[in-house]
Design a protein around this nucleic acid. Sequence first.
DNA 1: CAATACGGGTTCAATAATTGAACCGATCAG
DNA 2: CTGATCGGTTCAATTATTGAACCCGTATTG
Lengths: 269, 269
Amino acid sequence: MSVVAKAVDLLGHFSREAPEIGLSELCRLAGRDKATTYRHLSALEGLGFVEQNPATKNYRIGPAVLPLAELREATVPRRDGADAPLRALAETTQETAHVAVLSGQALHRLIACESVAHSTRAVVDLQQLPLHATASGLAALAFGPADLMAAATAQLTAFTAHTVTTAEALKARVAQARQTGFAVSPRGYEDGIHSLAVPAFDQSGQLAGTVAVACVASRMTPELERRIQRGLVQASREITHNWGGTVPDPLEALWRLALPLCTQKELAR
Amino acid sequence: MSVVAKAVDLLGHFSREAPEIGLSELCRLAGRDKATTYRHLSALEGLGFVEQNPATKNYRIGPAVLPLAELREATVPRRDGADAPLRALAETTQETAHVAVLSGQALHRLIACESVAHSTRAVVDLQQLPLHATASGLAALAFGPADLMAAATAQLTAFTAHTVTTAEALKARVAQARQTGFAVSPRGYEDGIHSLAVPAFDQSGQLAGTVAVACVASRMTPELERRIQRGLVQASREITHNWGGTVPDPLEALWRLALPLCTQKELAR
DNA sequence: CAATACGGGTTCAATAATTGAACCGATCAG
DNA sequence: CTGATCGGTTCAATTATTGAACCCGTATTG
């Protein structure tokens, strides 16, 4: 693991729930030495990636990420295209919806959108989604480039008792996703969370990202699952369209088969 | 210079003009070894900070910066507060306007807004603004924390023949800015560019950033300078207000003195 | 009000990571 | 075919990273 990775990993511990973190706490979270963590933070501070709250001495994300994000959006304007459909998805499902994008062999969170309908809800605070343990990852494996499977099987970390940890089991899950058109990861990454995901595509016709709903497991019912699937399909179609792509016909066929009760408008596409 | 800094410096070479850069070209731009640059890029790619265009093998800014920027905005929503006033400033001055924020001892670009009125215009592609050579930097030195001066004099790089390169000359410029309420850097960073800047403040009452207009030098007239000054004052007031701060009374007094013809509405504040 | 625990920040020798010249195969222009 | 340029790789030399121990200021506590 390079220093760059170690330093940047620190950034991943900041979240909406913990937007400012002190040195010692960050050491514990990162599981690293205090001196090392301090030097990494200092380096990041010099670059503007973090800054210190002068009052509390706590660290928080710095301003240097803003022009980079602006440039990213100007170069590859994905977020804009995903934003509105995602909000609609969170609205209709009343659960947390999120979109991730594939970059190389890794799946990175692009946006998360939490529904405010329930007091308990899933929180997606990961930057990078494990391929084998999340619905998004399974969707990427099932509908994305073939070489992803190698990257996934190389690191089958067990996050819960339900996490898939063998190559065989993973292949079975992926096959199931290919058959049904939906990737599911029941309690695979977090114990109380049941996730469903579908792929999204860009102008190249290849998988560019995934759309997922992370649902509080205890609320899951067959009826809710239907609603989530319907929402996912609609969101994926819209996001794919906004990204300049089209959903492959075989996948569209699967979705139509799985959701016979979808509206006439959707069928008309 | 730490590896982290070297790696992240690579990100600074991407711009709206060069959103995708190949390995060799980036080596030349960064002035570093090809193997090193490649490893740095690979590390950044693993973190999602850059990605490769699969078609051209060129590198571009990756998606990992997006959630970080989102979080930054959620933690310290500066950009939102600066956006609208900056557009107005670019509109009234017909020149390029930009806002930078102070983080530690460094001034980082937050937004730039180019007016489309002229075919030639200034382009602000810096991530970090040198304190001694830009109007923004001088504004920060004049109205920001005292310890900035030490950081500025430590690195008096000459960018043009007009750049201030002695501590004495720098002090004189800063004193002038303190007296007039406006920082000016005529051709200090780029030869054809004449810049003016004023400070902006946040809820702590301290300088939080700067507002500047970078003007094509050949267009500069006393009349245009007046218009720019008036625009800067208005923008700084609005941005400072949006950031939860207030412009210090002594500075407001200087501005009123310098701009006797400002509108009644502005005087009413 | 000592005693103490915990916060951020620093030091220095041991060590593990970074470095870059040279090299490889592919591609392209002349 | 030749030479130039591209992205990517190798390996020994070296350089920067590492972390236990330490410092100081400030809450917390019995």
